[in-house]
């Protein structure tokens, strides 16, 4: 376990909004090729961590390193180009476009030809445009949406929208993928499918994956390592068995569990 390469490392990352500390000294190390999880009750600061890693927030303190490079304070587009892609908790597809166009926008990042190639109708532009179209089809095929390529993205059922968002993220050719509550709103059957799907894309695209999830079945089922946040503080970390037995984690979740069981 120790010999593996570190893909992402955060060192004492802290985020304060005015007087409120959303995340306090968040430090993690993610090893290459693993699926790891970030859990915690609502409002624990999980999405804030995602927003810092992907550059939407600049941490108040601390630093973030990706493949050994300090990416703290980089703008989101640069971080994405470096190889970190993400999905959003409240699915954010491009409503005006088709399913295929959504994926193509993801692939645009690696496109070499640009506006003036398009304007001048250069052969290199048409060639690359065709390649991107084909690549996007392949990705849609990989997530099982190829038959819906020309549908409007907005009209897809919920589970398909989640998978499309993942396909779009994959189109940016990431090495590290952040999934924000991929199983939200799914039934047990879909959840099982999703777990297989995540493992599958990890192998196929040679990814490292960090996910936020509320569904304990998913987290315990696929994550090799887990961090637990509560009120912005990391209260526990370890493998699934260790986390399941940790009294602090149980305490943090107790209120919620109680409500759910009552």
């Amino acid at each position: 376990m120790t010999s593996r390469e570190i893909v992402l490392e955060t060192k004492d990352v802290t985020m304060r909004f005015g007087g409120l500390t959303a995340v306090h000294k968040f430090s993690i190390q993610v090893q290459k090729g693993r699926i790891v999880g970030l859990i915690g009750p609502n409002g624990a600061g999980k999405t804030t961590c995602f927003n810092m890693i992907t550059g939407f927030y600049e941490p108040t303190e601390g630093s973030i390193h990706f493949m050994g490079e300090d990416i703290t304070g980089w703008p989101p587009h640069k971080i994405c180009k470096a190889g970190i892609a993400r999905t959003f908790q409240n699915i954010r597809l491009f409503a005006g476009g088709t399913v295929l166009q959504n994926v193509m926008v993801g692939a645009h990042l690696r496109q070499k030809t640009t506006w003036w190639h398009a304007m001048l109708s250069l052969p290199s532009f048409f060639k690359e445009e065709k390649e991107i179209r084909e690549k996007s089809y392949e990705l849609l095929d990989a997530v099982g949406l190829a038959h819906l390529a020309s549908e409007e993205a907005q009209g897809l059922p919920y589970g398909a929208q989640r998978r499309l968002e993942i396909a779009r993220a994959l189109a940016t050719e990431p090495r590290f993928l952040l999934l924000d509550e991929p199983a939200a709103g799914m039934n047990p059957h879909e959840t099982q499918e999703l777990m297989d799907f995540i493992k599958q894309i990890k192998e196929k695209f040679d990814l490292t994956i960090l996910l936020i999830e509320h569904d304990m079945k998913v987290v315990m089922g696929i994550c090799e390592h887990i961090w637990v946040l509560d009120y912005g503080v990391t209260i526990a970390e370890g493998d699934p068995e260790k986390i399941q037995g940790d009294p602090k984690v149980i305490e943090a979740y107790l209120g919620e569990e109680y409500l759910q069981n009552a």
Partner: peptide
């Protein structure tokens, strides 16, 4: 926001 996350 999503566009920026896609590296644009």
């Amino acid at each position: 926001v999503a566009a920026r996350a896609m590296g644009i």
